[in-house]
Design a protein around this nucleic acid. Structure first.
Lengths: 345, 345
DNA sequence: TATAATCAAGAAAACGTTTACAAAAGGAAT
DNA sequence: ATTCCTTTTGTAAACGTTTTCTTGATTATA
């Protein structure tokens, strides 16, 4: 099928020049006389030559490529983030490649990071909120092979580029928003226990409740499994309580959508009977969802995607060692249809 | 930031052996005595060595990687396809990387294909239905640099691996399905004019109508712009007709969702007042859509994603030149909520 | 016309591997 | 003790580039 590569040597022979000259023509790195330039260009066209990336990378010690590693590329959660990556990729001179580790599989993620680190790309952008992602970023840090930036996962004390999201603050604001709506009986459905954001958002919930001197009733904290579908059962558990909450803050929109379904299945109205709030402002939900639009907390994923590529490409261009960049992005509440004022029934 | 690479030489020096021996240890390609093995392994660990991919690729003339190039990776249309790629990637020993060309930009797509072809991967999987994709696949064919498979885009007479979808047949069946439901006034909203599938599905529509001796009324064929949102105006144009259709076959679900909205906005019921059918069975729509689930035509994208990776990896493993594989996948109608029997009003 | 200065092109080293081949070392058989 | 295998290790070429250094040619300057 595939035939023998045509190399710079073949071109040189054809144009009757040295390989150095061919290289100069290809890279426009040095002057060559017009006739020779022509001759070389003709040979290149005739033979269909294009320079081998591996060889070039080897000698130049850089690849002009950036790698992005995420967990489940197919997850609609990534919609905006990918869009951000794509947009910035288009504007940069670097080639951008995505790698996806299926499930929460650390091994696979680690494998991709190693693969990329060893001369495939100049920088890696790593997205991940799993606790297990810490080991991956540690590898990146310790091997010190390439530039990288970590998105969303703050390993405290690790001096690397980090683009973080204020999940704690976002969750706290969300709960305070509910409190301002007059709610006092506010429950929380936690997310995937293997993710850091779950803890951060949980802490935000607790902090908001405490600051407002509101009691977290027995059973008001519901722990999901790794499957967001468990939002359904968790909501049912809340509604089974003798005195159920009047508002529920969910760790993410996927869970929230299942919580809303659970309420609907019991003949409750959302938000009139119970308010539901999510996180992520995920306009595209993994499963078909037909309920009201979920009031949520938006994180600027599009911006973060753009910024991450810009950050690494600037750092690569500058070349010298700089202080790591650590940036925290704030979230904002997006008011939609699943929260309303508390009204005594 | 990044410090000097540790190479096989460093390991050899540290373990006081030749670089060949280190290579043998790393690749388990040949026997080494246990003591030396230990010594080398220790040195590798101490120095944190891992072999450089570029150098290895250069000498071995293969990279053990497969590249996938698509147009808008963020598009939820790709959900199942990506899942298929991911699943197969997990099972293969190849590293799999995705590249995304934003918009319908051929230049960008071509650039990625060239980049990948020149020693970055061993095979390319190209997805695309744009007419402009033809030039990309032609490049792949003529350069004969690497193994590749084209998904969805049939360039007639080009002897390459093709995984195709029977869009023509799928569309024809869809329209016949509507005819069987008693509809005779059936309109068609075409899709993005730059895509081949648009023509194929259009032809399927025409064929079904002709075979059933049904007339395509004036104005029954509506041409969208490149934006699927134009399904909205196109549907309005249909409904503005003196004698509007009783069923509309849309070139894809995104358009269909906008068609349904347009009908709703006029106070019409779907499917009671007008039936709408889509294509793709896209469970996740690009925009928030809250109407009934769209009766559609499903293409086995998950399977195709899996198969494409399996195909190229098998071909790479076998090594010898084989006949190109051309496979056409059939679609199937998924009955949902936007089509019903025609009933005189 | 000689000399310096500029410029174009080639030769060869280097990048980090793998691998064919050579060499050495160890054992077994004579 | 010598020869002959077998096994382990080392040497060096190769992969396809870029780039430093040299050389040779041309032009400018005196």
């Amino acid at each position: 099928m595939t035939q023998k590569r045509v190399s710079i040597k073949d071109v040189a022979k054809r144009a009757d020049v040295s390989i150095a000259t061919v290289s100069r023509v290809v890279n426009k790195t040095d002057n060559v006389t017009p006739q020779i330039y022509e001759r070389v260009m003709d040979a290149i066209k005739e033979l269909g030559y294009s320079p081998n990336t591996a060889a070039r990378s080897l000698v130049k010690q850089r690849t002009n490529a950036i790698g992005i590693v995420v967990n489940n590329l197919h997850d609609p959660f990534f919609h905006d983030l990918i869009k951000g990556f794509e947009m910035a990729a288009q504007q940069t001179s670097y080639s951008v490649v995505f790698c996806s580790a299926l499930g929460g599989d650390v091994k696979s993620k680690e494998a991709y990071v190693k693969y990329l680190s060893n001369g495939v790309v100049d920088a890696v952008i790593l997205y991940g909120s799993y606790f297990s992602d810490e080991s991956v970023v540690r590898y990146l840090q310790e091997s010190r092979k390439i530039e990288y930036v970590m998105i969303e996962n703050d390993v405290p004390g690790l001096a690397c580029n980090k683009l973080l999201i204020n999940n704690y603050g976002g969750a706290k604001n969300a709960v305070k928003y509910l409190i301002n709506k007059g709610h006092t009986r506010i429950a929380h459905i936690c997310g995937n226990p293997n993710k850091k954001v779950t803890i951060e958002r949980f802490n935000g919930y607790i902090a908001a409740m405490q600051e407002s001197h509101l009691e977290v009733m027995d059973g008001f904290i519901q722990y999901s499994s790794t499957d967001y579908k468990s939002g359904f059962e968790r909501m049912n558990a809340l509604l089974d309580l003798k005195e159920p909450p009047t508002a529920v803050f969910c760790s993410d929109d996927a869970i929230a959508s299942y919580a809303v379904r659970a309420a609907f299945d019991r003949g409750l109205r959302v938000p009139e009977d119970i308010s539901v709030m999510g996180f992520d402002n995920q306009t595209i939900l993994p499963d078909r969802y037909r309920g009201p639009e979920i009031t949520s907390v938006e994180q600027p994923l599009y911006t973060i995607g753009m910024d991450s590529i810009r950050l690494v490409s600037e750092r690569l261009k500058s070349g010298q060692a700089e202080e790591p960049v650590i940036r925290t992005y704030e979230t904002k509440i997006v008011e939609k249809e699943t929260v309303c004022e508390y009204r005594k029934r």
